[in-house]
Simulated assay, not measured.
Amino acid sequence: MSTVIEQAVEARLVAAAPRMPTIPATLHYAQSDPYAVRMSFPAPATLEGIEVYWTFARELLVHGVEQPVGDGDVRVRPYGFDRTVVEFHAPEGTAIVHIRTGDLRRFLHRTLALVPVGQEHLHVDLDGHLADLMRDAC
């Protein structure tokens, strides 16, 4: 079984204009960073023209498909029958995207099969992280 999961999703960008363009995005999960999910947007889909990554707690997606969660830079909530809203807050502004809830559930199912909730600590390499910190300190 692979220790990294990637899944492409279509995100609908909510903008001031009534049209909601679809933009590609990719969800990433790595067993080596079991508490986190990364969502990336390719350069053509961003205002800066560079690939953008957001890293946030997997727990936000797990709970956010059922109920509103988050009060920081990333917030997640259900929207209607088949959509989930993910909000990304930054000093430059806020990006709001809609993602099919079924796509998120499939992704989460795969991540939870790899690392079940409550077992994340078994996959964290504390010695390796400490060694990295000490190496950078010298």
Rank of each mutant, 00 (worst) to 15 (best):
G102A: 15
L114C: 01
V115W: 02
D132N: 04
G118I: 07
D103S: 15
L122P: 04
L108D: 10
T111C: 07
L130W: 11
D125M: 03
G118Q: 10
L114Q: 09
D103N: 12
R110T: 12
V124E: 04
L112V: 05
G118H: 03
L104H: 03
F107G: 09
V115Y: 01
H129M: 07
F107K: 02
T101P: 09
R106L: 12
L130N: 12
D125S: 03
L104R: 09
R106V: 11
A131P: 00
H129A: 10
L104V: 13
D125K: 00
Q119P: 04
D127A: 15
L130G: 09
D132Y: 00
A113D: 12
G128D: 08
F107D: 07
V115N: 01
T111Q: 00
P116R: 03
F107M: 11
V117D: 13
P116M: 02
L114A: 06
D103K: 13
V117I: 15
R110A: 15
H109N: 13
V124N: 02
G102P: 09
R106W: 03
E120M: 05
G102M: 12
V117R: 13
L108H: 11
R106Q: 09
P116W: 00
H109S: 14
A131V: 01
L104G: 06
T111Y: 01
L112W: 00
V115K: 00
D127I: 05
R105H: 08
A113Y: 09
G102C: 08
R110W: 14
D103V: 11
D103G: 08
L114P: 04
L130H: 13
E120G: 05
T101K: 15
L126M: 14
R105D: 13
G128M: 05
H123T: 02
E120K: 04
D125G: 00
D125E: 02
E120P: 06
L126A: 10
A113S: 14
P116H: 04
A113I: 11
L122G: 05
L126E: 07
G128H: 05
P116T: 03
H121R: 03
G128F: 03
T101H: 11
G102D: 15
D127P: 05
Q119M: 10
D103A: 15
R110Y: 07
L104D: 03
L104E: 03
D127L: 12
L126W: 08
L126C: 09
T101L: 14
L130F: 15
A113L: 14
F107C: 08
L108E: 11
G118N: 05
T101C: 13
G102V: 14
D103E: 14
D125A: 03
G128V: 08
R110N: 14
D127W: 10
E120W: 04
G102K: 10
A113W: 07
L122H: 11
H123N: 14
L130P: 01
Q119I: 01
R110V: 11
D132P: 01
L112A: 05
L108G: 12
H109W: 13
E120Q: 12
L104A: 05
L130E: 15
H123C: 10
D125V: 02
A131S: 07
V117S: 15
H129L: 08
H123P: 03
A113H: 14
A131W: 01
Q119Y: 13
H109P: 02
L114D: 07
R110D: 15
L122N: 10
